[in-house]
């Protein structure tokens, strides 16, 4: 589904990505791990078109997406969340999810002004779909929460809403950047289950950047380890966790391996 070859990106002499090759197959949950500054988030940013790569190729479903606008990449079927949760804080919970369906809907200014039947139908569908997606997270984001601004949400709910927003773009591939950061163990366990459900029930392919090794172990079909902008290991969780290079990369940070 996603095939990346020789991906390079540097910021003012720092090589964030120095020739990364990797592939993600349909229906997989792949974790990307690595010490801080290993280039994980840069990898997401380049794939989703926030920054253009300096070199290398990104193929999504057999088509190169290098050089596309980030909105075009989303339209092609890749959605993401952000490490530092970037919701539209002044929009309501429901609006956050509705606005993300932008590229899957069509009604333009004309129809909006004339309030055509097409538009009304589409608006109703957008709203119904948004509510359906929010229901995926149980009761936390539904009911009276629909009309609250996102800034009124707790941290964990913001993370959930961000995933819901990404789901609303109807992606085939979902990129989650540290989805459980800052959550307590119970919330973490719940979200781990949700990630699996995303794949099993929704048929999404998921790539997760994560520091919490229990989550990595529980969700991943495959783990990819980055360090200094290159891939140093790849395989199942067990293979990777016993890999010499990985242990070396993490040396001095045993807590994070645990």
């Amino acid at each position: 589904m996603l095939e990346i070859g020789g991906l390079h990106k540097s910021f003012g002499g720092v090589h964030a990505l120095a020739g990364v090759d990797l592939r993600v197959d349909e229906g997989e949950v792949v974790s990307v791990i690595g010490p801080n500054g290993a280039g994980k988030t840069s990898f997401f940013n380049v794939v989703t078109g926030l920054y253009p790569p300096d070199g290398g190729d990104i193929m999504f479903e057999g088509r190169s997406i290098v050089g596309l606008e980030s909105s075009e990449i989303t339209e092609a079927g890749i959605a993401r969340t952000f490490q530092n949760v970037r919701l539209f804080l002044n929009m309501t919970v429901l609006e956050n999810v509705m606005v993300a369906q932008h590229c899957r809907t069509r009604a333009g200014a004309f129809r909006a002004v004339l309030r055509t039947p097409f538009l009304r139908r589409e608006e109703a569908e957008i709203e119904a779909r948004a509510k359906e997606i929010l229901a995926f997270f149980g009761t936390r984001l539904v009911g009276y929460r629909f009309d609250q601004p996102a800034l009124s949400l707790s941290y964990a709910n913001r993370r959930r809403l961000e995933i819901a927003r990404a789901m609303a773009t109807r992606p085939k591939l979902l990129l989650l950047d540290e989805p459980v950061a800052g959550m307590n163990p119970r919330e973490t366990a719940e979200l781990t289950g949700l990630i699996r459900k995303l794949r099993d029930e929704r048929g999404l392919t998921v790539v997760v950047i994560e520091h919490d090794m229990r989550v990595v172990r529980d969700v991943s079909d495959r783990v990819i380890v980055l360090d200094h902008g290159t891939k140093i290991a790849e395989g199942s969780y067990d293979e990777v966790s016993s890999d010499e290079a990985v242990i070396e990369a993490y040396l001095g940070r045993p807590a994070e391996v645990g």
Binding site: L50, R80, N90, V99, H102, A166
Partner: peptide, 12 residues
């Protein structure tokens, strides 16, 4: 609110 994120959510 956030132009970058809006683009990443598929808005042209």
């Amino acid at each position: 609110e956030d132009e970058t994120v809006a683009a990443a959510m598929g808005i042209n």
